[in-house]
């Protein structure tokens, strides 16, 4: 009997409509105005890689130990260095990082003993060419410079 009344008066329909009506409240509306408003990503976000430089003297922190390259599952980091006879250290010559194959797993970041390589909060890394995805040392130190859209 009750079921019949429910059917006649379309109770299920109105129940559903009441839910959708309640959700009209601005509190429940969830829209990201992306290009106009940049979302704030979390602090631990694993985004664009960066090769840190020492803020005091502008030298790179990287000691060319190659650990990041060995840790990477995709083997996409290539570090080359040459031995500096004066200081008996290895100086970093080139550092390439192929972001097109990177899966942002963070293993390289964990492997780095001196916190030179870091995955940052930048996430706008699109390029027009495939080659543009391969970042060299300069790019890694400066970080991506995406166009900012304002409206």
């Amino acid at each position: 009997m009750r079921g019949l009344l429910n059917r006649i008066f379309l109770v299920d329909l109105f129940q559903g409509l009441w839910v959708t009506f309640r959700n009209q409240h601005p509190k429940y509306i969830y829209t990201e105005q992306y290009p106009a408003e940049r979302p704030k990503v979390a602090e631990r976000y694993r985004g664009a890689p960066r090769l840190n430089i020492n803020p005091d003297n502008g030298e790179t922190l990287c000691i060319s130990c190659n650990l990041c390259a060995l840790a990477c599952p995709e083997a996409l980091i290539v570090v080359t260095s040459e031995r500096n006879e004066a200081t008996k250290r290895k100086d970093l010559t080139t550092f390439t990082y192929d972001t097109s194959r990177c899966m942002f797993c963070g293993l390289c970041e964990d492997a780095c003993p001196v916190d030179a390589l870091e995955l940052t909060q930048d996430f706008e890394m699109a390029t027009y060419t495939r080659e543009g995805q391969i970042w060299d040392r300069q790019m890694l130190e400066e970080g991506p410079k995406p166009t900012q859209y304002k409206c």
Partner: peptide, 8 residues
């Protein structure tokens, strides 16, 4: 991150 001593 103890910086590695020179020339590992």
């Amino acid at each position: 991150a103890p910086p590695k001593p020179a020339a590992a």
